[in-house]
Amino acid sequence: MNIFRLFGDLSHLAAIAILLLKIWKTRSCAGVSGKTQLLFAVCFITRYIDLFLHFVSLYNTEKVMKLIYISASVFTCYLIFFKFKATYDGNHDSMRAEFLIVPAAGLACLINTKFDAIEILWTFSIYLEAVAILPQLFLISKTGEAETITSHYLFAQGSYRALYILNWIYRYHYESHVDTIAIVAGVVQTILYCDFFYLYITKVVKGQKIVLPA
């Protein structure tokens, strides 16, 4: 574990917590893409499937973190699609999730480290996570604005994988550890946030709201 991965995971936890708090406190999921949250839930379940296969005692933080990610993302989907369904902006959350899931699944079968079920599920989860934020960014471009709290959520969510890139550089240099698939997907994922990062740093930090087109 290094400082970059630690802060990456903390940033990820913060993003999940910010979104849950926003929906719970405002009792509304306006401006939140339910599809993105569904895709994240799929990512966690397919990536941490080993938790369900052979139950390992929860002695280490990694297992606990995995359970937190899975339960928090499923709970977020429950809030969006059931509890606060009336506030779900289905009309603007219109990006076809199939256009993200099918290519990720296909690519996972073509480009992977080893052709076995668990490894392909992990690879699918990595590819899907890289593009899972697209419905959320698409929704913001359709509505033309993002609530400040949602911007903080996106900043934390985007920072998590950006910090992981620093973690991979660190591990390459000090542990000569390389996970090419995770690195390439992580770079693609972070690039998708660049436009948002620019808006966040030039606007939200100054207390303004993000309104598109910028």
């Binding site: 991965r5 990694e62 973190m65 480290t113 080893k114 490894e119 992990w122 973690n167 996970d179 995770a182």
Partner: peptide, 10 residues
């Protein structure tokens, strides 16, 4: 072995 493939990151 599977340890080689074990992905040790979240």
């Amino acid at each position: 072995g599977s340890s080689l493939l074990h992905h040790d990151e979240l």
